[in-house]
């Protein structure tokens, strides 16, 4: 559906996007993750047709949209990371303006506007002035605006940044609804947990390059085949750490304030042997369990790896 091929963007001598490639199948929500300044916005602006790539292609349903501006405008809905609204314009007039700008017939506009405002839960605000809306409402309105021409692809640059938790949940609900309508969605973020629940696949970008792509589970598998265990003890912390460090299957023992975390390679027997060993040595274990790995671990591991390679 949306295919990015060897995309390069240089600002003068600085390479912001470097041979970036990835693909988003139809109906998927792709989380585009990476720390600040790695080239997410640049990539998104190229997809939205607001910037010309130095090299590479962006294909939507096989058409190279960097060559065909008309296609971008028809197929892509874009919500920028920062955007403004006009003073002295009401919500439905705001929507009507963007309908008109997208050459939608006057006769069709009413229904489109009503449906979209319903989708983003702003039907009650039709008559309000746009600049009086809260930040979250403006965000939802801008999302509705990017949908007036019923684009197949929706690209959202940091849609959750600056929103309170409640507004984020609302945004998530809307995106899920859009996914069920068959839209192909790309969302960027520099915060991983935001995307791990929502995305069907994720790509982690660093310094203009894609480091890993895949489903959330894939990425966790790719980044590590270890299990993470967590124990809490009320007595014998030092002994526990000493024992853990002696085990060949254990690695990365981390002492936290009230618990100890470590990685382990092996099956259930290995895990159970370690617990036995601890108890035999009079360590008072009150908790012993597997810690759910989340994407943040993967993220930290990947970005750390990169730095190590460079050094």
């Amino acid at each position: 559906m949306l295919m990015i091929e060897n995309l390069v963007k240089k600002y003068g001598k600085f390479t912001a996007v470097n041979e970036l490639s990835f693909e988003i199948p139809k109906g998927h929500i792709f989380g585009f993750v990476g720390p600040n300044g790695v080239g997410k916005t640049t990539t998104i602006k190229i997809i939205a047709g607001l910037m010309k790539p130095t090299a590479g292609r962006v294909l939507i349903e096989g058409d190279d949209i960097t060559k065909n501006r008309r296609k971008v405008r028809e197929k892509v809905g874009y919500m920028p990371d920062f955007f403004g609204v006009y003073d002295n314009l009401k919500v439905d007039e705001y929507m009507d303006f963007y309908c008109a700008a997208n050459r939608i017939d006057v006769s069709g506009r009413k229904k489109i506007i009503a449906d979209l405002l319903e989708l983003v839960d702003l039907s009650q605000k039709r008559e309000s002035y746009v600049d009086s809306l809260s930040r979250g409402m403006k965000q939802r309105l801008c999302l509705a605006r990017s949908l007036v021409h019923d684009p197949a692809v929706l690209i959202l640059d940091e849609p959750a940044s600056g929103l309170d938790p409640r507004a984020r949940i609302e945004m998530k609900e809307i995106l899920k609804a859009l996914q069920s309508m068959g839209k192909t969605i790309l969302i960027s973020s520099h915060i991983l947990p935001e995307l791990s629940e929502l995305s069907t696949s994720i790509g982690i970008i660093e310094n203009g390059k894609m480091v890993v792509t895949g489903s959330v589970q894939d990425i966790m598998l790719q980044t590590s085949n270890k299990r993470l265990l967590k124990i809490e003890v009320i007595d014998g912390v030092e002994t526990a750490i000493k024992i853990l460090k002696e085990q060949p299957a254990v690695s990365e023992v981390i002492r936290n304030i009230d618990n100890i975390e470590f990685g382990i390679e092996g099956d259930g027997h290995t895990v159970s042997d370690i617990l036995t060993e601890l108890v035999k040595n009079n360590v008072k274990v009150i908790y012993f369990g597997e810690r759910q790995k989340n994407l943040e671990d993967a993220f930290m591991r990947i970005t750390k790896g990169e730095e190590a390679n460079e050094a």
């Binding site: 607001l50 008309r70 920028p80 920062f82 955007f83 403004g84 700008a101 997208n102 021409h149």
Partner: peptide
């Protein structure tokens, strides 16, 4: 300055 230009240029205008 108002950050509405990109939104305008993304339309079919």
């Amino acid at each position: 300055e108002r950050q509405t230009l990109d939104l305008l240029l993304c339309t079919r205008l």
